[in-house]
Amino acid sequence: MKDTDADLDALEDDALMVLFARGDVDAARILTDRLLPRVYRHAARVLGDRTEAEDIAQEAMLRLWRAAPDWHLDGPARPRTWLYRVTANLAVDRLRRKGRAVGLDDDVASTAPSAEAQLQDAGRMAALDAALATLPERQRQAVVLRHIEGLGNAEIATILGIGVEAVESLTARGKRALAAALADQKEALGYG
């Protein structure tokens, strides 16, 4: 008998992947609702472009669907972690193809429009995206995963393929750099 939504909602993502591999499209719906927002937000903040973020998010989810037949409940990665890693790699590829990658850690900041310029056009999210764009790519990813997606340092380390101490350093420096990039926008951002 078909599982009810409540039954499926109680399952971990791994179990839903196995069900989807057997053709359960309700499992796909629940996985989409759980994971797509995360993938989309990650891509949107790293790329600073909603249209490109949608492309990346859809591609990442398509790879997840195709990976389902080979998914094991006792495998090395959770679907969420695997998906974030795919998204991170797709985003970096897109940035490099467009010439917008800023190097891995402490290289020179990008030439993206300033936060102030973005704020004149589109508002708070655009200002955040512009500020994020001033960070080196890996620092940007770490800040997004830690301070927007709320992931722990260990999971971020797995996603980015670096050590936990490196994650701690990237997120701490990255958040200070973000605050500095937005320092001129106090009134527009609602404080000061």
Binding site: Y40, R45, L128, E149, L182, Y191
Partner: peptide, 16 residues
Amino acid sequence: KALDALDALLAEAARD
């Protein structure tokens, strides 16, 4: 204040 404002902005981004 700047850090608090940044936290608010990041929280807003988490609801995107």
